[in-house]
Design a protein around this nucleic acid. Sequence first.
DNA 1: CTGTTAGCGCCTTCAG
DNA 2: CTGAAGGCGCTAACAG
Lengths: 336, 336
Amino acid sequence: MVTIYDIARVAGVSAMTVSRVINDTGRISEATRKRVRQVMEELQYVPNSNARSLVLQKTNILSLLIADIANPFYTTLARGAEDAAKRLGYRLLFGNSDEDYGKEKDYVDMILSTRVDGVLFAPAGDGSAPHLRLLEQHRIPYVLLDRDVPGIQADRILGESRDGARRLVEHLIGLGHERIALVNGSEDVSTARERHAGYRDALKLNDLPYDETLVRHLDYSDGFNPSDLDPLLALSSPPTAIFAANNFLALGVIQSLRERGLAVPDDLSVVCFDDLGFASILSPFLTVAAQPAYQFGALGLERLVDRIENGDGSGPRTLILPAELIVRSSSRKRER
Amino acid sequence: MVTIYDIARVAGVSAMTVSRVINDTGRISEATRKRVRQVMEELQYVPNSNARSLVLQKTNILSLLIADIANPFYTTLARGAEDAAKRLGYRLLFGNSDEDYGKEKDYVDMILSTRVDGVLFAPAGDGSAPHLRLLEQHRIPYVLLDRDVPGIQADRILGESRDGARRLVEHLIGLGHERIALVNGSEDVSTARERHAGYRDALKLNDLPYDETLVRHLDYSDGFNPSDLDPLLALSSPPTAIFAANNFLALGVIQSLRERGLAVPDDLSVVCFDDLGFASILSPFLTVAAQPAYQFGALGLERLVDRIENGDGSGPRTLILPAELIVRSSSRKRER
DNA sequence: CTGTTAGCGCCTTCAG
DNA sequence: CTGAAGGCGCTAACAG
């Protein structure tokens, strides 16, 4: 491996001078600068960022921890984070917690030992709190993405879950639906709670009763189980519409309905939170509350870098990004 | 930051002993081991992997460079790579070249200065050759994924592009189609050339003429341009079926046809290479040659780690992963 | 079983 | 404008 000493020797200067040329610090005569540059070129010198990080106590690496890399919401978010990181001169170390606290903990340990400069953290859920405290103890700045964690004070980029859910459900109500089911994930996650609340808001605003039997909380960590829908469909007065609280649940719902010979939207309307990437382009089908996923990543990363480079003058800041209601063909007027 | 010296002092031993406890090397008495462990716990010690990398000349970081993070093929591949990396004790540094040689070069520079132990490289195209040579000059092992690069000797995990394409086109021929268009990307990419060849194979095997006017090469680096299809549709004898050489092109083709009021498969059949992730679940529509994307990542990473840890005893090895023809509703019998 | 010495590649500090 | 010395946190090699 070629080091600054190699190029110093060849260029007939000291290593320090080479270092100065590399970092553009101190005053160097144009002649030696040029000579050093040339030798670096010839020897194909590449700085060793480990050595540099060790002395500077700064790695220029940020970590992005997401919950599901198969989900277009998170991949779009990752794209936004990655573009911003590149623009701001940071590299991105990437982790996928798979909605699993155990895996998440493993990544946090990696993050600590890598000495990354900061973390973009899309937490698995409320149980992520200890992991965040670990980061705090080690003075690693982080920004929470998409999901809030109770008891944690930190910068965060959140979506309009409650209001977006309310609008989706009011859209269904406007189509004449009165028996609307909510298929939700675990309420261990802030967005699930918020969307549940938005669902209730919509019912209340329209003088519809809240019926617990229409609400399902599913643990879909190892896939969606079609039979989870049975209690809803077996109701004496079954729903005419389903609000799936995220895109993954919507996929499960639609597949399950299909298996049971039920057509969307002919037999039931279905709407969901989050758009579906490629799927929505190929067949613009699902009515959704779409979130600006790219912005979650890009703005989150910018905030993080700001925090790292300019300190925490202002205390935790929260940014709420709007959700957009996109009406497509999976929802339609209720047959009377 | 707490270092091994801190814990050595508190535990009343030397730093070396602490190091031995951490790495489970050398013989240490159970008593001191226990004491050291406890102090590490109390002080919340986390090893500094930079310092360790510096002396060991090994980072335990691998880099994954993909061409498009929005594409389900690559995200599924990334998932496979990530799972395997975790299993084998490596971290993954992540990069997205966006099919752009300039961005790719930037990432290669980053990779060099990070001193990663190896690279999983899905090249943008033939023009990636200089970047690969750079890796070679710096003795960084890499495995090529999905795309081959002429003149490069390296381990690679490739798909069955030629034969998969042949089967897709023969499927169309079996449905009675004789005027079959190929919508391809730049032939600067090996998979594009292979799929083109497979297309010709199918025609020849079935005694159909190869008609250049039915073949389009599109540069879709800044999105798919609907008017690119016009030359095909304006033909005096237009195609009754289109083979899109990848999933992204298929999206463009289908959107463009839709804009022009043409229905799939009623007016034209469409088939493509690569599956579409969420989209195929939501609406099982496109007939595709699906590749085992997860395996590309997982097997590629395993090969890479094998190379890193066991040297290159055997010379470059190539693994060909099969493509599976999945017939869905976007292709149907030609109307006579 | 445990400690000492030296050095990984680079940069900060202080002298020239 | 340039150089010498020392240290970032850790471990290999050698002593004891």
